[in-house]
Design a binder for these strands. Structure first.
Lengths: 334, 334
DNA sequence: GTGAAAGCGCTAACAC
DNA sequence: GTGTTAGCGCTTTCAC
């Protein structure tokens, strides 16, 4: 049904090579021929068959981005950044959701759906260090996140420990010493929760503030409701604190709600700092002080690194670290 | 580099047809042959070249979803639903962002990036009824949203007028009669703002409550900050009201902030209702009463309709309407 | 039961 | 300047 090169060639009374030449702006064409061909292209409404080109070239111009779930603001905003960065390089982005289970994450790496892409940016939330072997796939892959380090792949990630330490020091600098943590994962060493908790402890140690386990509230998932419940639980236990470091912004919003509903004012009674700098942080009440972990940079670097990997599949895997900064807003009394 | 059918055939000492038969579970194969072939496939690590299959079949198994911006919660959640629905049908989703300008929306419809997909789900935010002609593209297209009606394409959308009327009646039923509108677009007739305002007016008329233009606050964009500013402006004008109908949830969160900061308590002083039922509405403080416009149904129906359209490109265009419901939460005193 | 070969639409090396 | 042709890797018709 759709017109092909052959159809255009017949219509214009030339060979397909000539049509191809016109399409590719090959310079040495008689201008009368060029015109005839362009006419034929227009009258038949010809558009090149991209699939055939892909087969020829061995490239598709599509990369995949696998995230847990676009309903999570952090990943929605990451995806927005990745798509924007990919577009700059004229690449399309196929988005896959793993819905945040380890099995689905591992399974995704073998999905036939990926076989049509030139490479994959993969952001797992549940796989662990022991799953590193699963990353040894036979297509270009760039890893995001902080679940697996020193794997057999390029890795673009953030400085979790240093950033969490900076967030904690930010609170200490403002005279807060009883700093609760919301969102801990018990026993986790590697992963967002484990690393950020480590940064927190480093800050305390550096300032000579004792670490008090009763200030640590766990939350398996990091939705708003989890921050709400974890903070309620802290308050219910009668723990005294003058600040909260929520391990992501969404938890922080839940924490603020729990504080307000129990009569604690933010920031005068309790200062709250988050992590991620999702766009909502700038518009909440109060606006949220948080850590910008370099999401845009990560997105752009991931796309670039993937393209580099596609071009040179044999280069040694690299790890790339984003810069972070604390963004001061109202929730810490700014 | 990657093994092909030919390689497998050579390795197994058979023809490529036999290999193909094995791959496609063709029943009449000598089991010894089948085993030999499977061995060869395993030892060479053969995986079918999807691009070649695509060329043969004329299908790619990829659909595109074009939304304004994944940073907008509504569209992130819509994308999440579309991807989930597509996966059920074993389709991949290529996500495109138009960043919400009319020119980019129109341009997107002609992007070569789309030529690799089997069809497109298109959700414009700026194009208007006059742009309907641009939708007459030569590939399968399903339109979402409420910018263009009766275009030359399948259209899956929500009952904006009826749902907005129901939201307004919900407030009226609870004794609120001075209902402010946040997020109006002056002069708009078609489009989310125009249609929802119409539903609001219908509800007032039906109940004999006079329409008061001073209660209408405009907001070109619908981010949180826009709801904040629009509501501040209402308050600044000294307008009296006991309820707010925000034309989406994000505006509602901004409105709540403006109310709280000016000493108005939600819901006792002012009840607030939103529109969209984004997941955040269930976790805000107060939780937000809102309209669920049937987003999941829209996503699923859009994917199904697109597949039907791919299979029968000549069928007459259809319009499909989702059911809605008012979800009662704390912001209206539930 | 298995093989040979055409062809999906395109690009590009090679002729003339 | 323009035409011929050999693939890219796969599916499938038709022989045998």
């Amino acid at each position: 049904m759709a017109a092909t090169l052959k159809d255009v060639a017949r219509e214009a009374g030339v060979s397909i090579k000539t049509v191809s030449n016109v399409i590719h702006d090959y310079p040495h064409i008689r201008s009368s021929t060029r015109e005839r061909v362009q006419q034929a292209i227009a009258s038949l409404g010809y558009t090149p068959n991209q699939t055939a080109r892909n087969l020829r070239s061995g490239r598709t111009g599509v990369i995949a981005l696998a995230v847990p779930d676009l309903s999570l603001s952090y990943f929605a905003e990451l995806a927005a950044s990745v798509i924007a960065a990919a577009e700059e390089l004229d690449l399309a982005v196929q988005v896959e959701q793993t819905v945040g289970t380890r099995e689905r994450e591992i399974e995704l790496l073998r999905t036939p759906r990926l076989r049509m892409t030139d490479g994959v940016i993969f952001s797992p939330l549940e796989m662990g260090q022991d799953d590193a072997e699963h990353l040894a796939v036979d297509y270009p892959l760039v890893l995001l996140g902080e679940r697996i380090f020193d794997g057999p792949v390029d890795h673009v990630t953030m400085r979790n420990v240093a950033a969490a330490r900076a967030a904690t020091e930010f609170l200490l600098d403002r005279g807060r010493t009883r700093i609760a943590i919301v969102g801990a994962h018990e026993g986790e060493v590697i992963g967002s929760a484990g690393l950020r908790l480590r940064g927190y402890r480093e800050a305390l140690t550096a300032r000579g503030v004792p670490y008090d386990e009763s200030l640590v509230a766990s939350a398996g998932e990091w939705h708003r409701v989890d921050g709400l419940q974890a903070t309620r639980e802290l308050l219910g236990r009668g723990v005294e604190f003058d600040a909260v470091f929520a391990l992501n912004d969404t938890l922080a919003f839940g924490a603020i709600r729990a504080l307000e509903e129990s009569g604690h004012h933010v920031p005068s009674d309790v200062a709250v700092i988050g992590y991620d700098d999702i766009s909502e942080a700038a518009y909440s009440l109060p606006t949220l002080t948080t850590v910008d972990p370099g999401r845009d940079w990560i997105a752009q670097r991931a796309v670039e690194a993937l393209v580099e990997r596609i071009e040179d599949p044999t280069a040694a895997p690299r790890t790339m670290l984003a810069d972070f900064r604390v963004v001061e807003r109202e929730s810490t009394g700014g």
